[in-house]
């Protein structure tokens, strides 16, 4: 595998976000939503504590809406425009192309996350936050974004329609988020589902692993979960793209 080829695809994809207003709309929507939810809904100031919990807690739900928007075109547009035929008849493997696209989308969302730094500055101005927890929160959020992006890449590979790419990614993400939600797990258990099944469902949840990272515990099991999810979704995207590229 050649990193230069992956890098070429990465550069093209990353730049393509900024070639249209998409990038700016996305970044503004991300920052406005995160800011509004943090300050408006989570009583950030009223807590009297210099913590970023009310900020990080909203990230999964903001990603739920915005990551599918950033990933829906990655393969769907290639297929709709026929450029997939151009790309995959050049001396580049599907894995190299797929990785380039995934990394571009992940980095783009990472830029959005990095632009939340004023909230960090505000918190450190108001008090003395636990920097370990802050770093852990950002790492967790970035990995969550990576897993969501990989799910979006997979959804985009399913058809030549961006709308389908968006809706499928949203549905998968929503399912993987709510199965870690206690009321949902309680409802499932209420149907007579055995505990080991609800435990298994809970351990598959994006939310559960995010919450433990958000508490400031950098557990390799959580990081491993996200890496596993990314690898699994990209492998699925590769399989689907390979089978359906000509359709």
């Amino acid at each position: 595998m050649c990193p230069c080829k992956t890098l070429s695809v990465f550069r093209r994809e990353f730049k393509s976000y900024f070639d249209s207003p998409v990038a700016y709309v996305f970044l503004v929507a991300f920052l406005v939503l995160v800011g509004f939810l943090t300050f408006g809904f989570s009583s950030y100031y009223e807590r009297g504590q210099a913590v970023l919990t009310p900020f990080f807690i909203w990230h999964p739900w903001v990603y739920l809406l915005l990551v599918p928007a950033a990933t829906m075109g990655l393969w769907a547009e290639e297929r709709r425009n026929g450029t997939i035929e151009l790309l995959l008849t050049m001396p580049i493997t599907l894995t190299e192309a797929l990785l380039g696209k995934f990394l571009a989308a992940w980095t783009f969302i990472g830029v959005g996350l990095a632009l939340t730094f004023p909230i960090l500055i505000t918190t450190s101005y108001l008090g003395n936050p636990d920097w370990g927890a802050v770093i852990c929160g950002y790492v967790g959020s970035f990995f969550l974004a990576g897993a969501a992006t990989a799910i979006g890449v997979f959804a985009s590979s399913l058809s030549r329609s961006q709308v389908i790419g968006f809706v499928v990614a949203l549905a998968i993400l929503f399912t993987l988020l709510i199965i870690g939600f206690d009321p949902v797990l309680g409802a499932i258990a209420g149907w007579g589902v055995p505990t080991y099944v609800t435990d298994a469902l809970s351990s598959c949840s994006l939310l559960k692993h995010y919450m433990s990272l958000g508490r400031g515990v950098l557990d390799f099991a959580d990081v491993g979960y996200y890496v596993g999810m990314i690898v699994f979704m990209l492998a699925a995207a590769q399989y689907v793209t390979d089978c359906r590229k000509a359709s």
Binding site: S8, E85, P91
Partner: peptide
């Protein structure tokens, strides 16, 4: 390929530079 596809948001030079990089 049929219908001569290309990345339409790019300029001609950007597109050809991308292809050149993929080709090493």
């Amino acid at each position: 390929p049929e219908n001569a596809p290309s990345y339409r948001a790019m300029t001609v030079t950007e597109f050809l530079t991308f292809v050149a990089r993929i080709r090493g």
